[in-house]
Design a binder for these strands. Structure first.
Length: 228
DNA sequence: CACCAGGCAAGTA
DNA sequence: TACTTGCATGGT
């Protein structure tokens, strides 16, 4: 059990249970720690963040393993690989032409903005880095936040389709609160700002999706969120 | 066979 | 602003 006490939303006057924190505790108790991201280096995490867009991780791992097997998984080697070759290498992860182009768009940012040094990117303050990442064609809010949290270790909460689904089913989101940043704010306003907490929470949410048993539905009998 | 997977951008009205 | 569509492989 985590030792974080529930607290009220800053805009609420009455004391009420922190549903966001309760959901986290239930998922953690049920699944245990996930210890994300599944990758060895910040660069591998960055590449994985783009390759996993709307794609099952098992397919992404095939692509990453293929790159590793040919010793291509370094910034300099991928940057210098012709884009058609890169696309062919990452074929198993799907959308391979698109993702090869998106990786190259990011490499161009790293060249122009960070002097070709991943370490400079990682050391950039969170606001600036998020803006830079979002300026890259092919990097949207979730991919940017995944890089910020899991590669650069900034306190950024990652919102994905599961996050929306869970909050929606649990009546936490209003009808007109589907916007990425609104959802992110609802969550971060309910939690202490803690990188490891953000890391584990998003990982648990994805794990819930992988279980494929409607565990995000409060009426599911085998659900760790039953009754919520 | 259909459906989904740790999105995003571009087009349409 | 609010929908719709293309992108693509591999597992269930």
């Amino acid at each position: 059990m985590v030792s974080i006490h529930s607290r009220t939303n800053s805009l609420n006057i009455s004391v009420q249970p922190n549903k966001i924190l309760t959901i986290y505790q239930r998922l953690l108790d049920h699944f245990g720690r996930q210890n994300w991201w599944p990758g060895d280096t910040p660069f591998e995490i960055i590449v994985g963040a783009i390759l996993t867009q709307n794609t099952n991780w098992t397919n992404v791992r095939k692509a990453i393993d293929a790159l590793k097997h040919e010793d291509l998984l370094s910034y300099e080697k991928l940057r210098d690989l012709p884009i058609e070759f890169l696309a062919e290498k990452i074929r198993p992860c799907g959308y391979f032409n698109l993702k090869a182009a998106r990786l190259h768009n990011l490499f161009q940012l790293i060249e122009t903005q960070y002097d070709g040094e991943i370490s400079y990117l990682l050391d950039t303050p969170v606001e600036q880095l998020r803006e830079d990442l979002l300026s890259v064609k092919g990097i949207g809010p979730e991919t940017a936040d995944s890089i910020l949290l899991y590669a650069a270790e900034k306190p950024t909460f990652v919102v994905d389709t599961y996050t929306y689904r869970i909050l929606s089913r649990h009546g936490i989101l209003a009808e007109d609160e589907a916007d990425y940043h609104e959802i992110q704010t609802i969550i971060t306003d309910s939690l202490p700002e803690d990188i490891l907490l953000y890391n584990e929470y998003h990982a648990l949410i994805v794990r819930t999706g992988k279980e494929n048993c409607k565990k995000t539905n409060p009426r599911c009998e085998s659900c760790p969120l039953k009754g919520y």
